[in-house]
Amino acid sequence: MTPAAELSVGIVIATLGRAKNVATLLDRLALQSLLPACVVLSMEGAEDAPPARTYPFHLIQLFGPRGSCQQRNRALDSLPPDIDLVLFLDDDYVPSRRLIAGLVRFFAAFPAVSGASGRLLADGVGGPGITPQAAIALVESEDAGEERASLSVSPPHPGLYGCNMAYRMAAIGHSRFDENLPLYGWQEDIDFGSHIAGPLVYTDAFYGVHCGEKAGREHNGRRLGYSQIANPWYLRRKGTMPARFAHRLMLRSMAANGARLLNPEPWIDRRGRMIGNWLAVRDILLGRADPRRILEL
């Protein structure tokens, strides 16, 4: 068992069009009871970067083509060689002050675990979103309580939740995110997890809030709708997503888009997603479905 004090943590944040959210996240990371060794911001352009300031950790800023998989891969390649744990955070995630401390405590206590996602106090991705101010209030309220003496660990899962997922660098090795899943990279977290040897679990050892910020997301409903069908189909054929899981995912997306077609949420382009769903179904029947076709839509 490796002592928690000896585990170094690198944080990867792939971001696009959310400079304010990133600034909030970096400010929260600066308040950690245990600081990360480094934080990597992987961006498309300078407009994605937060205002310049000094942080109590090493900040690496990278620029290159957009796409969550591409951006995360660039960040992985830039991590110092002495990093033991890498934590992938969405740019609209608001962490507890005890996030890093809980993370290293967990991995020290469970040496057989290769990856873990923490507890979400709230997740705004399925609704209109949670403001950073409201998210900070939630985590501060939770942090005011006593730290849990025991650590929970779930049964193994096929993949982790991309907004907050941590892996041992030794388990990752040369594995990388599939860049054939462009832009938002729908289901890239499941695909990535399939390449990791060892259990992937969920725990309450570290926690935060996923705001579900709508700015900067893929607002082209056709593209996301196409990805909802084409990406699981591609991953099923690739062998990194079980067929039953992929089919259920595709049917669930089509059912949700169809059910809300006449009364859509203001923040979701249901009509565009439904069109994208059917375009992908057509391409599957024609034998030409490919996640990269969203770049043509």
Rank of each mutant, 00 (worst) to 15 (best):
P128W: 05
P128S: 11
G129I: 12
I130V: 10
I130T: 07
T131F: 04
Q133Y: 09
A134G: 00
A134K: 03
G145C: 10
G145W: 11
E146W: 11
A149F: 09
L151C: 06
P155K: 11
P156L: 04
P158E: 00
G159K: 00
L160E: 14
G162N: 09
C163W: 14
N164S: 13
N164C: 15
A166W: 03
A166Y: 01
R168H: 10
A170M: 15
A170N: 13
I172L: 11
G173E: 07
H174Y: 06
H174L: 08
R176S: 08
R176F: 03
N180P: 00
L181Q: 01
P182M: 03
P182G: 06
L183F: 12
Y184T: 11
Q187T: 06
Q187R: 07
E188Y: 13
E188Q: 12
D189A: 08
D189E: 10
I190W: 04
D191A: 14
D191S: 14
D191I: 00
G193P: 02
H195Q: 15
I196N: 05
I196W: 07
A197Y: 01
G198Q: 02
G198V: 04
L200C: 12
V201W: 11
V201Q: 10
V201R: 09
Y202I: 05
T203W: 10
A205W: 07
A205K: 06
H210I: 05
H210R: 09
C211Q: 14
C211S: 10
G212L: 03
K214P: 03
A215D: 14
G216V: 09
G216F: 04
G216C: 08
R222D: 06
R223Y: 03
Q228S: 06
N231H: 00
N231Y: 00
Y234S: 00
L235I: 06
L235G: 06
G239T: 03
M241Q: 06
A243I: 11
R244V: 15
R248S: 14
R248V: 08
R248C: 13
M250C: 01
R252A: 13
S253P: 00
